[in-house]
Amino acid sequence: MPDTPDNTLHDALVKAARLAHLDLPGERLEALVGGAERILAHVERMGAMDLEGVEPLVHPLDGVGTLSSDEPGESLAADDLMGMAPVAHPPFVKVPKVIDGGSS
């Protein structure tokens, strides 16, 4: 496994939490990162396997997977879609303001 470009694996995982948009209290973040570090230490055992020339397997079964024809079909009704949105003002889905500095 590579040397981490961040100072430590710990720092890299803290950064990953931020990139994953997880706002966590410090103590909870530390517990979570600590667990992830132990799991990744175990995962690194893969590095001891002889993987020279082995083709990565992206999907379990070759030949599974079909493309749909590009034709109009039934879709969800607008009312159904509104019902799925966390906050709606039909016929619009309400989201926080993202322009003018992004304040809501």
């Binding site: 890299a12 990953a16 990565p56």
Partner: peptide, 22 residues
């Protein structure tokens, strides 16, 4: 967090591609 980490630049090949080989 683990998933975001193993897919991030600098780690993808070492973790994700290696796992696909396994």
């Amino acid at each position: 967090v683990i998933g975001t980490f193993v897919l991030s630049a600098g780690y993808h090949d070492a973790y994700y591609t290696t796992a696909q080989r396994v």
